[in-house]
Simulated assay, not measured.
Amino acid sequence: MKPNPHTDPLAHHLLSMAYNNAWANHRLLAACAQLSPSELQATRCNFFPSILATLNHNLCVDWFYVDALERELAGDAPHEDCYQFFAVDEPFQYAADLQREQAAVDRRLLAYCAAQRDADLGRIVTIARPGGAQQDSRTRLLAHLFQHQIHHRGQVHAMLAGTAVKPPQLDEFFCAGEADLRATEFQDLGWTEADIWA
């Protein structure tokens, strides 16, 4: 029987978080795509020194954790060298490349969350790290990944405020009365409201 996360409250919440995460990335990167390469790379006040560096960091961390989640789900061993995802600090220099790669890993995360059921969310995911394995439940790793994205998207949002590009609204979570405000973006992403809330 195919998993239906809509019938499992926690799995459904995590799936809705994955949709919101992908939508927020889509909206933020569309704004960043309006910047010139020099504006993307400009040094700004932030933990990572530029919009480009922050977006690349978010992408690399997504690669790292989504790989671990997918491996555990498939019954495969942890990645022997998971730090390969950080081998290059800024693997992409242009917004279009970041948009493409972020959308790809966001689709992988959506597929992962769509396959979940509440009964399985306590299963342990192992990440092979130097000095010992990191082990956390699926729930904890997903919560960490979403929080990480929110944190760094907020930093990019703040840095955008120092440019001519208006930072997009990211602080609302799919309010029912505002579906029309995101309808065009959902169409671009190939989703409907029913995909999330059925």
Results as ranks from 00 to 15, higher is better:
168 P>S: 07
19 Y>N: 04
156 V>N: 09
187 Q>G: 10
50 S>D: 10
57 H>F: 01
152 H>L: 04
107 R>S: 04
159 M>S: 02
162 G>D: 02
169 Q>A: 08
13 H>T: 15
194 A>L: 11
151 H>L: 05
99 Q>E: 15
172 E>F: 11
189 L>N: 04
102 Q>R: 13
152 H>N: 08
137 S>R: 14
172 E>T: 09
156 V>Q: 06
95 A>C: 11
186 F>L: 15
184 T>P: 06
68 A>S: 07
163 T>P: 06
86 F>G: 09
95 A>P: 11
8 D>E: 15
149 Q>M: 00
151 H>W: 01
135 Q>E: 15
95 A>F: 09
122 G>F: 10
152 H>I: 02
152 H>V: 02
139 T>L: 14
117 R>V: 15
50 S>E: 11
60 C>I: 01
116 Q>R: 14
5 P>I: 12
11 A>M: 13
161 A>M: 02
195 D>M: 10
174 F>Q: 06
158 A>P: 03
9 P>C: 13
145 L>E: 00
20 N>V: 09
39 E>D: 08
175 C>R: 04
152 H>D: 02
144 H>Q: 02
145 L>H: 01
121 L>W: 11
57 H>Y: 00
3 P>S: 10
34 Q>F: 04
193 E>N: 01
13 H>E: 14
88 V>C: 15
136 D>N: 11
191 W>D: 11
127 I>W: 09
176 A>M: 06
13 H>I: 14
114 A>Y: 01
148 H>I: 01
58 N>F: 00
77 A>K: 10
189 L>D: 09
22 A>R: 08
169 Q>H: 06
181 L>Q: 01
170 L>S: 05
